[in-house]
């Protein structure tokens, strides 16, 4: 447990002075304009913001899909800010489990193969892959359906498969991008409850959303506005200012 204790001191995610600047023609777009943020292991953070606020850019940086123009991003003690393409791929594979709005399952692979994908890229052998993937599917209650293809499932079930895929590699961080965006409110509720349960089990979850009603399900809320954080605090305080 000394390791866990060590991590307690060092935040899992540490963003310092993050800038991301795009150029659209001659126009400079400051999508992230000086973001400082720390997220510790075991937190459930909602990053909320309107469209165009810069929350997606922030998600891409946290998800190691992109590198900041300026600033420092440490994930699990490693500086990710200026890693190469291949190094980023490895970080994504080992540290981050993605849950996308559109599930992003591969339609031509069955559920098991879909969940196995990150394990495949991690270089695990077939037996180990299968075991872990099945265990992961069991956690989301879809083990029996492993032979099915994504299009044979409801939206809620597909999102659960994508959560299983995110969990399969036992990542340090679950990054959920509008996880309920494509679902009706009932199944959206189920997915949120499931994420909460995962958090209670000790998983660190960062959820990106534009919807305050979803954001208040988290334990901590970070609001982005014009590329900067204009609220960062406990969900109760956030609910109070709504």
């Amino acid at each position: 447990m000394t390791e866990a204790a060590g991590k307690e001191k060092e935040p899992l995610i540490s963003l310092r002075g993050i800038h991301k600047i795009y150029y659209m023609g001659d126009e400079e777009v400051r999508a992230n304009d000086g973001i400082d943020l720390e997220i510790r292991e075991g937190e459930f953070v909602a990053i909320v913001g309107k469209s165009g606020s810069g929350k997606s850019t922030l998600m891409n940086i946290i998800g190691a899909l992109d590198v900041p123009t300026d600033g420092e991003y440490c994930l699990g003690g490693q500086d990710v800010s200026d890693m190469t393409d291949n190094e980023l791929a490895e970080i994504r594979n080992r540290m981050i489990g993605f849950v996308f709005q559109q599930y992003n399952l591969l339609p031509k692979l069955n559920l098991l193969e879909n969940v196995e994908l990150p394990l495949l890229y991690a270089g695990l052998d077939a037996k180990e892959r299968r075991e872990k993937a099945l265990a992961s599917l069991e956690r989301v209650g879809l083990k029996e359906k492993w032979r099915n293809y994504p299009n044979q499932l409801s939206g809620g079930q597909q999102q659960r498969v994508s959560i299983a895929r995110a969990l399969a590699g036992n990542p340090s961080l679950i990054l959920a991008d509008e996880p309920t965006g494509a679902l009706d409110s009932k199944t959206g509720r189920e997915v949120l409850d499931f994420l909460k349960k995962l958090n209670e089990d000790g998983n660190t979850i960062v959820m990106i959303t534009h919807d305050n009603a979803i954001a208040v399900e988290a334990r901590r809320v970070v609001r982005i506005h014009d590329g900067q954080i204009n609220f960062d605090g406990d969900v109760k305080d956030y609910a109070a200012i709504l």
């Binding site: 393409d85 791929a89 994504r92 080992r94 993605f98 992003n104 591969l106 994908l117 895929r165």
Partner: peptide, 16 residues
């Protein structure tokens, strides 16, 4: 393209 994006997000390197 989307499939490639998903694979890359899940950790597929260029060479793969």
């Amino acid at each position: 393209t989307r499939e490639i994006g998903i694979r890359k997000a899940l950790g597929a390197k260029r060479s793969v």
